[in-house]
Amino acid sequence: MIINNLKLIREKKKISQSELAALLEVSRQTINGIEKNKYNPSLQLALKIAYYLNTPLEDIFQWQ
């Protein structure tokens, strides 16, 4: 199972779901689904999230 800290990191950086979704060219619902662990992002999307949040990938997504 993958645990993610996306919501915590996104809120710490004061970025809304809508703003992050626009940067990543995905829907706000996609961001919401990832934050709620409804599904895991593709590797490409995970890397883009880490890039736009300027945060190491392993700080956002962790195996458990």
Rank of each mutant, 00 (worst) to 15 (best):
N40P: 13
W63G: 04
F61V: 02
L6E: 01
Q17E: 06
E58T: 09
I3C: 07
L57D: 02
Q44F: 11
K12N: 12
Q62W: 06
L8A: 15
Q29N: 14
P56S: 08
K48C: 07
N32C: 08
T55P: 01
S16N: 08
K38L: 15
N32Q: 09
V26P: 00
A21M: 03
I49W: 01
I9N: 04
L57N: 02
I15V: 11
Y51S: 09
Y39E: 10
F61N: 01
D59I: 08
L53N: 00
E25Q: 15
L23K: 12
I34K: 00
E25P: 06
S16D: 06
S18I: 14
L43K: 11
I60V: 08
L8M: 14
L8C: 09
N4S: 04
Q62T: 09
P56Q: 07
V26N: 02
K36V: 12
E58K: 11
L23H: 13
R28D: 12
N32D: 15
D59A: 11
L23P: 03
L20R: 00
Q64W: 08
Q29W: 14
A21V: 03
I34A: 02
I15F: 11
E58A: 10
I3R: 11
K48R: 14
Q29L: 12
N54P: 00
N54F: 06
F61L: 03
S27L: 03
A21T: 03
N5H: 08
Y51N: 10
N5Y: 06
N37C: 08
E25M: 12
Q64E: 15
S18P: 07
N37E: 07
K38R: 09
E11Y: 07
S18D: 14
L47E: 10
M1L: 15
S42F: 04
N32W: 10
S16Q: 06
A50D: 00
Q29E: 15
I34F: 04
G33C: 11
L45E: 04
Q64P: 13
Q17R: 09
S42K: 06
L45W: 04
Q29C: 10
S42Y: 05
L20S: 00
Q44I: 12
E25T: 09
L57C: 05
N54Y: 06
N32F: 07
P56N: 08
L8T: 15
K13P: 01
T30Y: 15
L6K: 00
E19R: 14
A22T: 12
S42H: 07
I60H: 01
A46E: 02
N4L: 03
N40I: 14
K7N: 06
Y51M: 10
I3K: 13
V26T: 09
W63E: 04
A22D: 12
A50L: 02
E58H: 14
S42E: 06
S16H: 05
L57K: 03
Y39M: 09
I9W: 07
G33Q: 14
R10Y: 02
Y39S: 08
I3D: 05
A46M: 10
Q62P: 07
E58S: 13
K14A: 11
F61M: 03
R10D: 01
F61D: 01
I9K: 04
I49C: 05
L47R: 13
S16L: 07
R10L: 05
S27C: 05
I2Y: 12
L23W: 15
R10G: 01
Y39I: 15
S18G: 15
Q17G: 05
Q62I: 10
I49K: 00
A21L: 02
N4K: 02
N32G: 09
T30N: 04
N5T: 04
L45Q: 06
I2P: 07
I49H: 00
E25V: 08
Q44N: 12
V26E: 05
S42P: 11
E25N: 14
A50Y: 02
D59H: 12
S16M: 06
Q64T: 13
I3P: 05
W63H: 04
M1P: 12
K13I: 08
I31R: 01
A50W: 02
S27M: 04
K7R: 15
L53F: 08
S18L: 12
R28W: 15
E35R: 01
T55L: 06
R28V: 15
I15N: 02
L45P: 00
L43F: 13
L24M: 08
E35S: 01
R10W: 02
T30D: 07
T55Q: 07
R10S: 02
L43R: 10
P41Y: 03
K12L: 13
N4E: 01
A46D: 00
Y52K: 06
P41A: 04
Q29M: 11
K48I: 05
A22M: 12
E58N: 14
Y39H: 11
R28H: 10
N37L: 06
Y39L: 13
N54Q: 13
N54K: 12
K14D: 12
A50E: 04
L57R: 04
Q64N: 12
P56E: 08
V26L: 06
T30W: 10
N37F: 07
Q62M: 10
L8H: 14
I49F: 05
I31S: 01
L47F: 09
A50H: 03
Y39V: 14
I15M: 14
I31Q: 01
K14C: 09
S27T: 11
Q44W: 12
S18Y: 13
L57V: 12
E11H: 11
S18M: 13
S16A: 07
K13L: 14
A46C: 07
S16E: 06
I34N: 00
A22H: 13
K14N: 15
K12V: 08
I2W: 09
P41N: 01
L6F: 03
L47W: 10
I49L: 07
I49M: 07
S42L: 04
E19G: 11
I60Y: 01
N32H: 12
Y51V: 08
L23S: 11
N54D: 13
L20V: 03
S27N: 09
A21Y: 02
R10F: 02
N40R: 10
K36I: 13
Y52V: 15
L47D: 06
Q17W: 03
F61K: 00
W63M: 05
K48Q: 11
N37V: 03
V26K: 03
L53S: 01
P56K: 08
E35W: 01
L20P: 00
L23V: 12
F61G: 01
Y52G: 05
I31L: 13
N37D: 09
N40F: 12
I49S: 02
L57P: 04
P56I: 04
I49N: 00
Y39A: 10
K48A: 10
K38G: 07
E11L: 13
L20A: 02
L53Q: 02
I49Q: 00
L20T: 01
G33T: 08
D59Q: 14
N37Q: 09
L8Y: 11
Q44M: 11
N5F: 06
Q44Y: 09
S18W: 15
S16Y: 04
E25F: 10
Q17I: 13
L23Y: 14
F61E: 00
L45V: 06
R10A: 02
I31Y: 04
